Amino acid sequence: MPEPSIYIGQVSHKRLTPFVHALDYKVFSLLLDIDKLRETASDTRMFVYNRTGVVSFHDKDHGPRDGSPLRPWLNNILSEHGYELRDCPVRLLTFPRLWGYVFNPLSIYYCYDRGGHLKVVLYEVSNTFGQWHGYLLPVTREASGPVSQKTTKEFHVSPFMPVDGTYEFTLTPPGEKLSVLIRYKGEQGEDRMIAKHTARRSDLTAAGLASALSKHPMMTFKVIAGIHWEALKLWKKGAKFHPKPDLPRNHITG
């Protein structure tokens, strides 16, 4: 079972239609045990839980967004979708708040059974309009190897992409390395966008956080600034604008 960790790596996006547009940026994420957030904060200077700090994690940035603990919410989600994993071990991969600010385009909950086998993944997707949606997908791989998953796109992320087609996820669960590959395909099966996150593990310690912060001191601000800057470049290139549709009826789909 992976311990709370820092993952330092890179995110890349490549739009393929109607023209090619690519970007990449360096990031660091935290892998957290959702049942030991207070203990992690107590053990790790520089990292605080539900308080203002240089590096912090707030319950209100995830799940129901009301500041309540994540475990009861996630238990209900799993039970409602037929997964017998109540109080199962869960690791959350996400950006921390830096200097009190964060925007998480994608956070990932890895849900394990008591034997330490990955059984379900929840992809928590957010857009810049303050909305979010979750894709809850089972893990059907054999004992080893990458996880492959597929789901219908239900949620408006970019105003320059429609809400149709499918997502195909390929991920390597957290270990000494991790990777997440997302292919967004159109209704005819054509690739529209490819995104990838690769990272290498580091210990979640005060020294590890200080090192990551020294290399990426304004990371969370750069993420949201970069999204808007790239949107401006897409608009100047003539990308078709898609108005924001109504939210899906359910916050979680699979």
Rank of each mutant, 00 (worst) to 15 (best):
G145V: 02
P138C: 10
A199Y: 03
V102Y: 08
Q131E: 15
E187C: 11
A210L: 13
T220I: 01
C111D: 12
L98I: 15
F103E: 12
E84H: 09
A199H: 05
G189Q: 03
D191W: 02
K185N: 11
Y167S: 05
T220K: 10
L178P: 07
G115Q: 13
A143Q: 05
D113E: 03
M219I: 11
K150C: 01
R192Y: 09
Y135Q: 04
T198C: 10
T152R: 14
D203G: 13
T140P: 04
T166E: 14
V90G: 00
H216D: 01
A195V: 12
H133C: 00
R141Y: 00
E190S: 06
G134A: 10
H117C: 12
I182S: 07
S126G: 06
E154G: 03
A210W: 12
G115A: 07
A210R: 09
V102P: 04
T172S: 09
K119G: 08
M161I: 09
Y123R: 04
S179W: 07
Q188M: 08
T220R: 09
V125K: 12
H216M: 13
V157W: 06
V90R: 00
G208N: 07
S211D: 07
L209H: 03
L106C: 01
E168D: 14
G165N: 01
M219E: 06
V90P: 07
T140C: 09
M161K: 08
G208E: 08
S144W: 00
P146W: 09
M193A: 12
S214W: 13
D164Q: 10
P217M: 00
T172Y: 04
L178N: 06
F95N: 09
R86H: 02
R91F: 01
P96S: 02
D87V: 07
Y167Q: 04
L118I: 01
S148L: 10
A207S: 15
V163L: 04
T198S: 13
T170Y: 05
S211K: 15
Q131R: 11
L118W: 08
Q149M: 06
V120G: 02
S214L: 14
L178W: 05
P162I: 05
E168H: 08
S148R: 15
E124F: 06
E84W: 11
S211G: 12
L118S: 05
L118C: 06
K150E: 09
V121C: 06
R200G: 15
H133S: 00
A207Y: 07
I182Q: 11
Y167V: 10
V163Y: 01
